[in-house]
């Protein structure tokens, strides 16, 4: 991929969280799963409160709705888990991302991506890398490193 192409478009997997559309970096996505049994991790906090089995590996399950202060209705027929690679403190790791619905893979034109406004946004600005536009809808591009970085070791040395 050349520099020009890279800056031109974001290759994105679009998902729905509550009523908002989010764009995840598609190249980091490993697979999309139907809901699987989730093991609760006591005292881990709601953001990564669970573990799932992905092909014999134990993978933490993250709920971005917690980071964005959204409602968390129980899973329904549209619920999916997006398994993707995330860089945390410079180390790659695999995590599951809960999605209320998975749409499709799309290119989001770079030209349409704007920086998140510092004020007046419903979402925590530090978790938003930018706002893109797809057709007539806004797409939130979450800053995964920020989101996961903030939550790493939430309960370190607790209890």
């Amino acid at each position: 991929m050349t520099q020009a192409q890279e800056t031109n478009a974001m290759h994105a997997l679009t998902i729905r969280l509550q009523d908002e559309m989010f764009a995840l970096e598609a190249t980091n996505v490993r697979e999309i799963l139907d809901p699987v049994p989730i093991t609760r991790v006591p005292n881990a906090g709601a953001f990564v409160g669970g573990l799932i089995n992905v092909r014999g590996n134990v993978v933490p399950l993250a709920d971005l709705r917690v980071s964005f202060g959204m409602d968390r209705p129980p899973a329904d027929t549209d619920t999916r888990i997006v398994v993707m690679e995330i860089e945390l403190d410079g180390e790659p790791m695999v995590a599951g991302i809960l999605a209320d619905k998975v749409y499709d893979v799309a290119d989001i034109e770079a030209a349409s991506i704007e920086e998140a406004p510092k004020v007046g946004m419903r979402w925590p600005a530090e978790y938003v890398r930018g706002i893109g536009r797809r057709d007539d809808d806004f797409v939130i591009i979450p800053d995964m490193q920020q989101i996961f970085g903030a939550r790493a070791n939430p309960a370190a040395n607790s209890n």
Binding site: V41, P42, N43, A44, V48, L51, N57, V58, V59, P60, A62, L88, D89, E91, M93, A95, F148, R151, A152, N153, P154, A155, A156, N157, S158, N159
Partner: peptide, 13 residues
């Protein structure tokens, strides 16, 4: 299986 760094702070496990 090791816990990821997201959970390694939980000393109970």
């Amino acid at each position: 299986k090791q816990l990821s760094s997201l959970h390694s702070g939980l000393k109970t496990f």
